[in-house]
Amino acid sequence: MTLLLIRHTAVMGAGGLCYGRTEVPLAASFAAEAAAVRAALHTTLAPQPWTLYASPALRCRLLAETLDAPVTLDPRLGEVDFGDWDGHAWDDLPRAALDGWCADFVHARPPGGESFKDLIARAEDFVADVARRHADGTVLAVTHAGIIRALLAPRRGLGYADAFSIAVPHGSIHAVSESLAP
Rank of each mutant, 00 (worst) to 15 (best):
L98F: 14
R95I: 14
T72F: 13
F116A: 12
P70C: 03
F105V: 12
D86Q: 07
A108M: 10
R95K: 12
L140S: 05
G83Q: 06
P111C: 09
A64N: 07
R109G: 06
L63W: 06
L63S: 12
R95P: 15
D86Y: 08
G100Q: 08
L73W: 10
W101A: 12
L119R: 00
E114T: 04
L140K: 01
R132V: 10
L67E: 05
P110T: 11
H107L: 07
D125V: 01
E65G: 01
P75C: 03
A64Y: 01
E65V: 06
P111H: 04
F116S: 02
A108Q: 15
L140Q: 11
V80H: 06
A123G: 15
G100S: 13
G83A: 07
D92C: 11
R61V: 15
D118G: 09
A135K: 09
L93W: 05
R132P: 04
F105K: 11
V130K: 03
A69W: 06
R61E: 13
G113N: 02
L73P: 12
V80M: 13
R109H: 10
W85M: 10
A128N: 04
P110F: 02
W90R: 07
W85L: 13
V130E: 03
A131I: 06
D68I: 00
G112R: 02
R61I: 14
A141P: 00
V139R: 00
A123P: 01
V139I: 09
L62D: 05
E124C: 02
G78I: 06
I120V: 15
A89Y: 07
D125Y: 02
L77A: 03
D136A: 15
D81F: 08
V139G: 00
H88N: 13
V127M: 08
S115W: 00
R109F: 10
E124L: 08
D99A: 15
L140A: 09
G137T: 07
R132H: 11
L67G: 10
A97S: 14
G100K: 03
L77H: 03
G112Y: 05
C60M: 09
S115D: 04
D125R: 00
E114H: 08
L93H: 04
A108S: 13
R132Y: 06
V127G: 01
